[in-house]
């Protein structure tokens, strides 16, 4: 997938128009992102901490941005991370991926590469086997190439 500069600008304009009318949520996520978080947590507001996102401060190209997530958990049969939801709140659709762990995962860590349409927040929400939820947010600046390249 290639996101052209024009599309990126269009998205920015759209998001700006949207924010003018939408009520602002604590971390300024879009309503769609907030709904996705609530659907994942069963309505609960996640606590900061325990989960941490590893993203570059600046992505050279929005088509391939490395993202890593680590959850502080013993990963035993009694206490483990069930899943981690990754969202990107400035994309046409915020859903990125959901990792599902088990006690056999050994460590609650995963990495992948994602597409970001523009500079925006990447969000990770972790759900533990006891139902508690945690969240981390990182901003990634997406640069736009030089000449049409």
């Amino acid at each position: 997938m290639t996101i052209t500069r024009r599309q990126a600008l269009g998205l920015t304009a759209g998001a700006a128009a949207f924010l003018t009318f939408a009520p602002r949520i604590s971390f300024a996520a879009t309503a769609e992102t907030d709904a996705a978080i609530k659907a994942f947590t069963g309505g609960a507001t996640p606590t900061e901490g325990t989960v941490s996102l590893d993203t570059p401060e600046i992505a050279e190209n929005g088509n391939t941005v490395p993202v890593g997530v680590t959850v502080d958990s013993p990963m035993t049969e009694d206490s483990y991370v069930e899943s981690v939801l990754i969202l990107a709140d400035g994309n046409p659709s915020p859903a990125v991926a959901t990792f599902h762990f088990t006690a056999m995962s050994g460590a609650a860590e995963a990495k992948t590469r994602i597409r970001l349409a523009k500079t925006q927040n990447v969000i990770a929400v972790a759900k533990m086997n006891d139902g508690s939820t945690f969240m981390d947010t990182k901003e990634v600046k997406v640069t736009i190439g030089g000449c049409g390249g």
Binding site: M1, A97, F99, F101, T102, S105, E109, A110, K111, T112
Partner: peptide, 21 residues
């Protein structure tokens, strides 16, 4: 051991790194 649901925002040639005990 590990599974993942992927949405269209995952890059081409999807890469996954994770652990196993």
């Amino acid at each position: 051991v590990f599974s993942c649901d992927l949405d269209p925002a995952v890059s081409a040639n999807p890469y996954m790194e994770f652990n196993a005990k």
